[in-house]
Design a protein around this nucleic acid. Structure first.
Lengths: 201, 201
DNA sequence: TTAATTATAATACGGCCCGTCTCGTATGCC
DNA sequence: GGCATACGAGACGGGCCGTATTATAATTAA
């Protein structure tokens, strides 16, 4: 395997990072002032003062562009968690932190829009899963397995089912749009509902 | 409150039910052969051999039209459930029946598309909730309250949280599109995970 | 220095569908 | 028959799509 320090340079003019950042910024800016529906590629290009073709060259769709903006901006990042000796409080902490990110208006609006796109475009659905849900599932995995090692959580726990219950509940709230978004109290409620079902015997 | 047997007739030519059914049929037909994205009002009108205006006159959007088609067609209906003396098996039965409906390809495709619309259109979001989620939440409510009366379920149960966990999990599976859809086994898993948290002391 | 290659901003283009409007006609009430 | 509204058909302007073109800029290879 070649491990050259300097990346292999392609011939021709290189991609402009100024343009790239400008496009991502324009997309995020527009998202804070417009409905996702009303955002167009042409509008992003005009806002960023960039050629339309420069967008089409690098991003297959508006959704891909926004997903990239979101995963790159710090707004949506969760700092890594250090596991304590208590699996249940670890789980609760993780959820509190997750719900806190999700409660930001720009985040929930973005998730809403991208979930919508994911339902209408199979290719994007897979990308969205990889970029968003996978990490969340892995976080729950990690906490539960640690809890199993500590003998606090039953060894035959269905990790996938638990992850889906937790993420599903918050997602349902977000998408149905009828109740308030998930908060710390909800994290406690969810963990306490699952606690007995998860406990080691 | 007036309770006239004959509905008050508006003047002018009455709405044609043939046209209405034709439009709904065309929409459902197109959904079975096309992606939701590719379905247009013009396409529905042409398929139904109906004037475009006849669609715009009665439905505010493609999504409203499809929601009406879905709620009216038997494919999406769940027969009412008779509660037994065991709240947990009632809950499991309800979920099995719900998941069975949801597992039909046309149903999951429709839910996917309409969830997407609901995220992009606030007005439709409320309508979709009323037409779809409300009934599901009420079903869970009913079962849990019955269980409380039977002293099988703790009286201080957070019914809303349980309903959101259950519907969220199946929704998450459907929308993330990575694992298989929910089935009987999942219904058992979900109920067993929640069982101890719900049980009366 | 020059040639080759690719990116960039700007803009033009055909095409599709939107939602509205306008026909002439049909179908119900009074 | 008069009135009101629905109907099928289609014309219309407008917006955005995604592609193509153009002239220019930036970088590498010879």
């Amino acid at each position: 395997m070649e491990q050259d320090v300097r990346a292999k340079r392609a011939p021709g003019r290189p991609r402009s990072d100024v343009t790239r950042q400008g496009v991502l910024d324009a997309a995020v800016d527009l998202m804070s002032t417009h409905a996702y529906r009303d955002i167009t590629i042409e509008g992003i290009a005009a806002t960023a003062r960039v050629g339309k073709q420069s967008i089409y060259r690098w991003w297959p769709s508006k959704a891909d562009l926004l997903l990239e903006a979101y995963t790159e901006r710090p707004l949506y990042k969760m700092p890594p968690q250090i596991l304590s000796g208590d699996a249940f409080s670890d789980l609760e902490d993780d959820l509190v932190r997750y719900f806190t990110v999700l409660r930001q208006e720009m985040v929930s609006k973005g998730v809403r829009s991208l979930v919508a796109e994911a339902q209408l475009d199979e290719a994007f659905r897979a990308k969205f899963y990889e970029a968003v849900w996978r990490k969340r599932c892995e976080a729950v995995h990690r906490i539960l397995h640690h809890g199993v090692a500590l003998r606090q959580i039953r060894a035959d726990v269905d990790v996938e089912a638990v992850a889906h219950l937790i993420h599903g509940a918050s997602l349902y709230r977000l998408l149905s749009g009828t109740s308030r978004p998930f908060d710390e109290d909800d994290a406690r409620t969810v963990v306490s509902l699952l606690r007995d079902g998860l406990k080691a015997r």
